[in-house]
Design a protein around this nucleic acid. Structure first.
Length: 679
RNA sequence: GGGGCUGUAGCUCAGUUGGUUAGAGCUGGGGACUCAUAAUCCCUAGGUCGCGGGUUCAAGUCCUGCCAGCCCUACCA
């Protein structure tokens, strides 16, 4: 029976590049999807960039561009990385789409109608300079318990936990400003009203791994579920809540809805109906996620889906984190390798296979040992699998495949029989088991060639038929392996298809051997891993991390683009044009009010020695005359003197600002002498 | 503090509903071969199944205590 299956991976956040840790999930999912497609099921793989939230807003500001521009570039980069690893989405959308806005509204209405939304005021730290509310991670200060400085907003290295409002001398990490406490209205989902439903779903749906269900039951469902704060006040990059102006949906509200929105976009361009996928009980929904976002996908999301009358997830496949050489990935060690960096030094197939040998259906962290990685790929893939084709490739090109499949001692049949068990392993997410089974078959195949001794046959023309038979067996066993491995190694399957003249598209191709056809010229299918390359990869990652760190340490500025808009840049000039303006350092030797003038102060500027200039400056509203006396300013010294109502003005003091009280005189750093020219 | 998971050969892991001498791959040692990317093949070494109790005719496999490691503890679940 053909199943209809919709598969998603977690939406990558548009705040950074894809790294090998992320890839655990996308590779895991892609393998599952490819497997389902090979089995003849209707399966679509949906994903999107997660684009909203404070972090994106801040980053865009930092980079001095719009959020849309930022997320556009990021989405492109993400898709390039995914594609580099052979991850094939049926549709890749964005949470910042019209479709998503509409479906969010629909969910929102359902939540309102179900009377699940409540509103109340909460106090939160606010950064008056960056003009935004601060999530805990954007506040640092001194721990109220132990007195350590520079601690995070919610906990200290001493183990104490507290509210960011308890911090001593808190500072915003965005601007360095001291945050103030500000009250705002937030909207909440009263999750407790769905408690009974969630209890039942967690217990009986079978959608969750046992350890996850236990965790939820023991941890969240054992007590009253807290209200979920689902809104953020402006400024926020996201969707404004239609019936609550000035409030935006929290990024975790619209992100999972992005699964549906992205599906809708796919439907629209493929003549499909959204309801056939998200509201048809016969359609399976499979989410692949990391353990860090379990909570959202197993409590809020089911609650929302149920309320809005969409399909519940058939299964939430939760995986652990990636360690490298037994340790957490770290930028400093160069083990947090960006997808892009990896691709420069190593074949993506290696990583796909390695992860496959490590993945189980449980929520376990998996370790990428660099040596183990090298050994496994070289020994399993190159030494066993590819070698099988490689060692008979040349002969086979001359002989072609036999008309009937020869006696191979039952190897092919045994391999075909193992197919069910391997398929079952893929289906249940036990890729490690599947890989083990496949390698058992590979282990049995090489001795066959060894014992047949094709290299002796080739020397004797009388034995051409025997040689052909041996090649036929070896290549069919190889092809069987390629079929079984094709969800993991699509590229290898493709090359196998080219060699034997029949594309690998279906699992059942593992059941019947190919006979009576020519064999193409053999071409090398996969290179061995070079340990030096991996070293270089780590080194480059370290360097990149160092560069990033340098950038990250720069303070964040939140400069408005208004001044430039008010007064656009002037026409380009040459250095000669600029040289015409003689700017000089000058000291204010006297400053006095001009009684009849509204805006002017009368200044006497010294250019050193006896040189004096009288200048009328329009800075009355901004400066008190007494405070100007003695200070150094920059003046335009060769400006044609101008007669004014109160006397002759023999120059101009340089200052910025629109005028009125908003005038800022240029100062000169310590050490400058009156009369020095500004170059 | 609480909760979860893990602990089997040097390394990565299998061990089905408890049943005769605990398995594989890699690594190590010895040999063979040369078709193949120093790939492959044959032989071989290596484990008191974390430790201590218990149930049983029988336990790596069930129960219990302890030890070690990892993860989580609500707004990054």
């Amino acid at each position: 029976m053909t199943r209809k299956i919709l598969v998603t991976s977690a939406l990558p956040y548009a705040n950074g590049p894809i790294h090998i840790g992320h890839l655990v999930e996308y590779i895991q999912t892609d393998i599952w999807v490819r497997f389902q497609k090979m089995r003849g099921n209707r399966c679509i793989y949906i994903c999107a960039d997660d684009t909203h939230g404070t972090a994106i807003m801040i980053r865009a500001r930092k980079e001095g561009r719009s959020e849309e521009e930022l997320i556009g570039d990021m989405s492109e980069a993400h898709q390039r990385d995914f594609s580099g690893f052979g991850i094939q989405f049926d549709h890749y959308g964005s949470t910042n789409s019209n479709a998503n806005r509409e479906i969010c509204s629909e969910f929102w209405q359902s939540l309102r109608q179900a009377d699940l939304i409540t509103e109340r005021s909460i106090e939160q730290l606010y950064d008056p300079e960056a003009e935004t509310f601060l999530a805990d991670r954007f506040v640092r200060g001194t721990c109220p318990t132990c007195g350590r400085t520079d601690q995070a907003g919610d906990n200290c290295t001493c183990g104490a936990t507290y509210n960011p409002t308890d911090l001593i001398d808190p500072k915003s990490t965005l601007s360095g400003a001291t945050p103030i406490l500000r009250e705002s209205n937030h909207l909440f989902v009263q999750l407790e009203k769905l408690h009974a439903f969630l209890d039942n779903w967690v217990e009986t749906s079978g959608a969750l791994q046992i350890e996850v269900a236990n965790y939820l039951k023991g941890h969240f469902l054992a007590e009253e579920l807290r209200d979920w704060d689902i809104s953020r006040p402006a400024p926020y990059f996201g969707f404004e809540i239609p019936d609550s102006p000035g409030n935006y949906w929290y990024v975790w509200f619209d992100a999972p809805i992005g699964y549906i929105a992205s599906t809708r976009e796919w439907c629209e361009s493929n003549g499909e109906q959204l309801a056939d996928w998200w509201r048809d009980p016969d359609c399976e929904i499979h989410h692949f996620i990391g353990k860090d976002i379990t909570y959202f996908h197993t409590l809020f999301w089911p609650g929302m889906l149920n309320t809005a009358n969409y399909n519940m997830p058939t299964k939430v496949h939760i995986h652990g984190f990636l360690n490298v050489d037994g340790k957490k990935m770290s930028k400093r060690d160069g083990t947090l390798v960006a997808a892009e960096t990896y691709l420069k030094y190593a074949n993506p197939s290696y990583l796909r296979y390695f992860y496959a040998t490590k993945l189980t259906s449980r929520v376990e962290d998996l370790d990428l040992g660099i040596d183990e990685f090298t050994e496994k790929v070289n020994s399993d893939l190159v030494g066993k699998v590819v070698n099988l084709a490689s060692r008979v490739g040349k002969f086979a090109n001359k002989t072609g495949l036999s008309e009937t499949y020869p006696d191979d001692g039952g190897l092919f049949t045994a391999g075909a029989l193992a197919g069910d068990e391997i398929a079952e392993a893929y289906e249940s997410g036990e890729y490690a088991k599947a890989m083990r089974k496949i390698m058992e078959l590979a282990d049995a195949a090489n001795p066959f060639v060894e014992h047949a001794k094709p290299w002796e046959m080739k020397k004797d023309e009388q034995r051409t038929d025997e040689l052909r038979d041996t090649c036929t067996v070896a290549l069919n066993l190889f092809r069987q392996l390629a079929v079984y491995l094709s969800p993991v190694l699509p590229e290898l399957a493709m090359k196998c298809g080219e060699l034997l003249g029949e594309e690998i598209t279906s699992w059942d191709q593992s059941k019947s051997p190919l006979v009576g056809r020519p064999v193409s010229k053999f071409q090398r299918m996969m290179d061995r891993v070079q340990p030096e390359d991996l070293k270089k990869m780590i080194e480059e990652s370290k360097e990149l991390a160092a560069e990033d760190a340098a950038t990250d340490n720069q303070p964040t500025f939140n400069d408005s683009d208004q001044p430039l808009k008010d007064e656009p840049l002037a026409e380009e000039i040459t250095i000669d044009d600029f040289a015409k303006v003689d700017l000089r350092v000058a000291r204010v030797v006297s400053a006095e009010q001009v009684p009849e003038a509204n805006k002017l102060l009368k200044l006497t500027l010294s250019l050193g020695g006896e040189e004096r200039r009288q200048v009328f400056a329009g800075i009355k509203a901004a400066y008190e005359p007494e405070k100007l006396v003695g200070r150094l300013v920059v003046m335009v010294a060769n400006l044609k003197p101008r007669k004014m109502r109160f006397g002759l003005s023999e120059g101009m003091v340089t200052a910025a600002g629109p005028g009125g009280a908003e005038v800022f005189i240029l100062s000169v750093d310590e050490g400058a002498q009156p009369g020095q020219r500004v170059h």
